[in-house]
């Protein structure tokens, strides 16, 4: 099998991530409830059992399906943001690294500054004005604004170092065509990096959105893992000891982040090993 050489971190991380993807995108399509966020759909604050696997919230929502739909939206947001910011970042980084000169200096100054601008205060300002009415694609665009500089920075430095490296010159002098050089020599580096960068972008997008949602500054009417924690907190689920309500999103968020990060760091170790082979 192709994952024979995967290390334990990568295996566990990828397996759990896959499980989350299945739960978020396959299981969620069997959701029997038209609107999981609707209040009073079911009897309130029920313990698990009786048709509700994880019980119901104090607002009369089914905890299991609410959590599944929240996971779906969080994953969707993460994937969309990761895709947009990687595409934009790679484009700017390549341009900056290949062009050099004044254009490179301006682009680098811009990306470095955008990395240093604290994004959460600005997102809070936006959220406070929009009062929880941001649809997922718009939220993804806003998060992209702050996450593309990281891949841009990495792509630029990779472009610079690969362009100057010995093995490229060796390949060129031994008569390899440009396309073959890109496919055989450059692509392995870039693809290893892009898997890591993409995973990292998913992670930070979901993390930022849930941080924003927990203080009520994301979309309060749309289920995401952060929003679910927000409502549980807002209705004192801790004080009334409704552990499944606060626990489900907390456990999902924690496991998802650990799984994504294990995939990321396991993949990096795996890629280093494979290159060294």
């Amino acid at each position: 099998m192709f994952f024979r050489h995967w290390n334990i971190r990568l295996r566990v991380g990828a397996a759990v991530t896959l499980l989350f993807l299945v739960l978020g995108f396959a299981v969620s399509s069997f959701c029997p409830i038209p609107d999981v966020m609707a209040w009073g759909s079911f009897p309130k604050s029920r313990p698990p059992g009786g048709g509700h696997i994880l019980g119901t919230t104090a607002l009369g929502q089914d905890i299991f399906w609410l959590a599944v739909m929240s996971l779906r939206n969080s994953l969707l947001l993460g994937l969309l943001t990761a895709f947009l910011s990687t595409a934009l970042g790679v484009a700017v980084g390549l341009f900056s690294g290949l062009r050099g000169g004044a254009a490179d200096r301006v682009a680098t100054l811009f990306t470095d500054s955008l990395i240093a601008v604290p994004n959460l205060p600005i997102l809070i300002l936006l959220g406070s004005i929009l009062k929880g009415r941001i649809p997922i694609p718009a939220l993804a665009l806003v998060l992209t604004l702050f996450s593309w500089p990281w891949p841009a920075r990495a792509t630029r430095s990779m472009t610079l170092s690969i362009r100057e490296s010995d093995f490229i010159s060796t390949a060129r002098f031994s008569g390899e065509g440009t396309l073959k050089i890109i496919a055989k020599e450059i692509f392995p580096f870039v693809s290893d990096w892009s898997v890591a960068s993409f995973t990292n972008a998913i992670l930070s997008a979901i993390q930022t959105e849930s941080g924003l949602a927990i203080i009520g500054m994301s979309s309060n009417t749309m289920p995401t893992l952060g929003t679910m924690i927000y409502w549980a907190n807002d209705r004192s689920a801790i004080l009334s000891e409704q552990w499944f309500w606060i626990g489900a999103p907390v456990v999902l968020v924690t496991l998802l982040f650990i799984a994504l990060f294990m995939t990321l760091s396991g993949y990096q170790a795996y890629a280093t090993m494979r290159r060294g082979k």
Partner: peptide, 22 residues
């Protein structure tokens, strides 16, 4: 640290609130 690093602040904060304040 690989297990602890990706856990966001607010989750740790919630855990600590539940454990040491509740």
């Amino acid at each position: 640290s690989i297990v602890f690093y990706p856990i966001p602040y607010y989750i740790v904060a919630l855990f600590l609130i539940i454990a040491f304040a509740h």
